[in-house]
Amino acid sequence: MSDTINFTIDGKDCQGKKGQSIIQAADDNGVYIPRLCYHPELTPGGSCRICTVNVNGRQMAACTTPVAEGMLIFNDTPELQDMRRALVEMLFIEGNHFCPSCERSGNCELQALAYRLGIMAPRFPYMFPQRTIDASHPQIYIDGNRCIQCGRCVRAAEELDGKNILGFIGRGPFLKIKASSSRGLAGVEIKPTDRCVQLCPVGTIIVKETAYRTPIGERQYDKKPIGAEIEGSH
């Protein structure tokens, strides 16, 4: 029996391999499904729901759903895009995202996704939450204002760096990322080359004194929108 799985996304015939999630199979076929908490090097988190697609009439998270033979998947529909827009807008209003002066601007996945989805302003009122900054470490700092609770750093620390140094505390809107030491970041083993630092999609985990080194026009998403690297591979 062949391991090849046949399915369609928005009417396009695609082939996947057994054991792949929908998002992995879609990537291989050059179809970009928007996502935030998913990263190919990590086990899927399934928490942001940006990657929601319509599978045989039901809405499923593409990063956690295995691809299966004969699936009829819809990705780029007005309803799904609007739902994604709403989710991204909620992330914006729930934190304190000041793109104009953020050092991650131009290299930020949240910002790039907002651009790609055509968001001009959020439809919800800003919440202006109180968030904290952990600047205690000499090289790394955490700016809670920009955290979207995707958990990529937590998974990266565990799965790739092999250390339990980051975690969430609190619940619901008060959920926040924290170094697992009473002294904050200063109390944990963390360095700029750690994957948990590098995989932050926004400007929350930052290597100090590296800001604005790339001129405007040459930053990651200045030239091509997010997802172009997946679409361009085919």
């Binding site: 104009p100 050092e103 900054i133 700092y141 100090k208 004194e209 800001a211 604005y212």
Partner: peptide
């Protein structure tokens, strides 16, 4: 106040 120093040139110009 409280922002990292390297942000100042980009923030304050606003």
């Amino acid at each position: 106040q409280g922002r990292p120093y390297w942000e100042a040139p980009v923030v304050v110009q606003r």
